[in-house]
Design a protein around this nucleic acid. Structure first.
Lengths: 168, 168
DNA sequence: GACTCGTTCTTGAAAGTTGAACTACATAGG
DNA sequence: CCTATGTAGTTCAACTTTCAAGAACGAGTC
């Protein structure tokens, strides 16, 4: 019997799988910490908030419905509500009512928000480059893209019982 | 002139780099959310806390110095202090004084903590498998390991001015 | 219309994290 | 010994995230 007592023995990770998993955790944790710090220093907001501004900047009329924005950022609507409230205080985003659905809200990027983005984007790109693309070979970059797409797909099932953040 | 005004034009990401970066953000965000939720439900703690118990379970005498634990978990000592305080309340960890350095503290995994780990490890391994190893080919797993090691290395420079979480 | 059910988004409290300040001890140099 | 400087860990306040409601509207049915 294994560590599970009377349950069936689970398939543990092999040594190489464990090493890969550890490396994944280390790299992702360090990178997120690094970017959070870089952006907090240079842009005055955490990485997730910055990502929201980026999404908005690329949307038509620089605005998105809340749920849509939550979906593209992979976060819950609750989290987004708080985040937008904070960004609105900074004057980087404003809320707008949706005419076709009175429950709906748009988040729109203001000119000030666009300015912050313009000012800080180069530094951020540099940080991402230094951490990732400057270190990987072109083959590795392609491989990483493929791998991450496979993982992301598996994590957002299309079924009606899917537990996705922006549907919670 | 570029978006930087009078500054030198930064090297923006190519289309493929952007796609890879997006995929990376999506996959890592979704996975962290998924594991946090799985462990909160099944083990009553977030993923990082679970990782701390795992580290302790593999250390000699099931204990580690605070800073050492912070280093292996890639987090700040402040964050660790709070986390250990919470885990101590649950009875899964105890603090012990270090005899050779009166400033030092050990965090030691209790038997209860070990039990929680034994109970919940199989479910966690399954979750990790389903998200990652069941979807990747053996080649991809090897590639991912290599890539993550390269990134992690770049993010923990050895210099004396390195801004690493556990030194803050 | 009235009723039900689902969707959209927000709120408030609890939990977790961060950064700076702080205590206590260690180490090195005079 | 004494002082200066560094290290180990904690604490406080401000901030962010989560979770469990809840308010408001839409859509379908009778």
């Amino acid at each position: 019997m294994g560590p599970m007592g009377d349950m069936t023995e689970p398939r543990w990770l092999t040594d190489e799988e464990q090493r890969t998993w550890r490396a994944y955790l280390h790299a992702t944790t360090l990178l997120e910490d690094h970017l959070d710090r870089q952006l907090q220093r240079d842009a005055g907001m955490p990485h997730v908030y910055y990502g929201l501004l980026v999404q908005l900047s690329q949307a038509p009329r620089r605005r998105l419905r809340m749920t849509e924005l939550a979906r593209s950022a992979k976060i819950t609507r609750s989290r987004l509500s708080h985040a937008i409230a904070r960004l609105e205080k900074n004057g980087w985003v404003v809320r707008e009512n949706c005419p076709s659905d009175k429950r709906g809200q748009f988040a729109r990027l203001t000119d000030d928000g666009m300015d912050v983005l313009r000012r800080t984007a180069p530094g951020h790109v540099t940080a991402v480059r230094q951490a990732m693309f400057d270190r990987l070979s072109p083959e590795q970059m392609t491989q990483l893209g493929e791998i991450m797409r496979v993982m992301a797909e598996g994590l957002e099932p299309s079924g009606p019982d899917a537990d996705l953040p922006w549907l919670r």
